Amino acid sequence: MSNKNWTIAFDADDTLWHNERGFKLTKNSFSELLAEFTSRDGLQDRLLSAERRNLGIYGFGVKGFVLSMVETAIEVTDGAVPTDVIAELLSMGRDMLSDPVELMPGVRGAIEQLRQTAEIVLITKGDLLDQERKLAQSGLGDLFDAVEIVSDKTADVYARIFARHDTAHQMMVGNSVRSDVIPAIEAGAWGVHVPHELTWGYEHADAPVTHRRFREIFTLRELPELVATLN
């Protein structure tokens, strides 16, 4: 067993660094490009439906999102979408894949403090190359004992990852109740929700507020104190 008491895993996007606001800006541009064909709300609903439908094919991340935009554009225009619109959608995707990484407040300090008594793991889903790029640009890579880039976050995935670290206690920290909290709790870990002002519709779920291993904080600066109360 590890000589540390905890394995603490972190989500990446919108937990350690900003991510969803780039998607929001692109969705706004998408709506403007197709304004003559459909309403904004109708377009966004159809895009979300396409994203949900395509997750099992394309997975999570920018590339699948761009393909879903193209598919939606074709659908709402009955195949008449101009080629320059398709070209612009592809350009927006390339821009997203080169967006600079901006850390959330207090991230490095919290992790540096916690790693004194915990195994620190990054568990993120999405495109492999993009997630590796963001981790490298974040400057946080040296703080993690392990990095796990997974196709999806399920109770089985969490159980397998936590088993490799063999500590007395486990915790998953993230902004998504659906992906970061509920399946981690199902795997026997603590689930800590750190809300973000922007959360993708797919990730919405009711928080398990009555569960004994659920906690909510509003900044990662609060996490070391929370962990100390659970020891």
Score class of each variant (00 low, 15 high):
Ser2Pro: 05
Ser2Trp: 00
Asn3Pro: 08
Asn3Lys: 11
Thr7Asn: 07
Ala9Val: 04
Thr15Leu: 09
Asn19Gly: 03
Gly22Thr: 08
Thr26Trp: 07
Asn28Thr: 05
Ser29Cys: 07
Phe30Thr: 12
Phe30Pro: 14
Phe30Gly: 11
Glu32Lys: 15
Thr38Pro: 06
Thr38Asp: 15
Ser39Leu: 01
Arg40Phe: 11
Asp45Thr: 10
Asp45Leu: 14
Leu47Val: 11
Arg52Gly: 00
Leu55Gln: 13
Ile57Thr: 07
Phe60Asn: 08
Lys63Asn: 09
Phe65Cys: 04
Val66His: 03
Val66Gly: 04
Leu67Phe: 06
Leu67Val: 05
Met69Ile: 01
Thr72Met: 04
Glu75Tyr: 06
Thr77Phe: 00
Asp78Ile: 00
Asp78Lys: 01
Gly79Leu: 09
Thr83Arg: 02
Thr83Ala: 02
Ser91Glu: 07
Met92Ser: 01
Met92Gly: 00
Asp95Ala: 01
Leu97His: 01
Gly106Pro: 01
Val107Arg: 08
Gln113Tyr: 04
Gln116Lys: 13
Gln116Met: 08
Glu119Cys: 12
Ile123Asp: 06
Leu129Asn: 13
Asp130Leu: 08
Gln131His: 05
Arg133Asn: 11
Lys134Met: 10
Gly141Cys: 04
Leu143Arg: 07
Leu143Asn: 08
Phe144Met: 07
Phe144Ala: 10
Val147Ile: 15
Val150Ile: 15
Lys153Leu: 07
Ala155Gln: 15
Ala155Glu: 14
Tyr158His: 12
Ala163Lys: 08
Arg164Gly: 13
His165Lys: 09
His169Lys: 14
Gly174Tyr: 05
Gly191Trp: 00
His196Pro: 03
Glu197Lys: 13
Leu198Phe: 10
Thr199Met: 13
Trp200Ile: 11
Gly201Tyr: 04
Glu203Ile: 04
His204Gly: 10
Ala205Trp: 04
Ala205Glu: 14
Ala205Gly: 13
His211Phe: 12
His211Val: 14
His211Glu: 05
Arg212Ile: 15
Arg215His: 13
Arg215Pro: 13
Glu216Phe: 11
Thr219Gln: 15
Thr219Leu: 09
Leu220Ile: 03
Leu220Ser: 14
Pro224Ala: 09
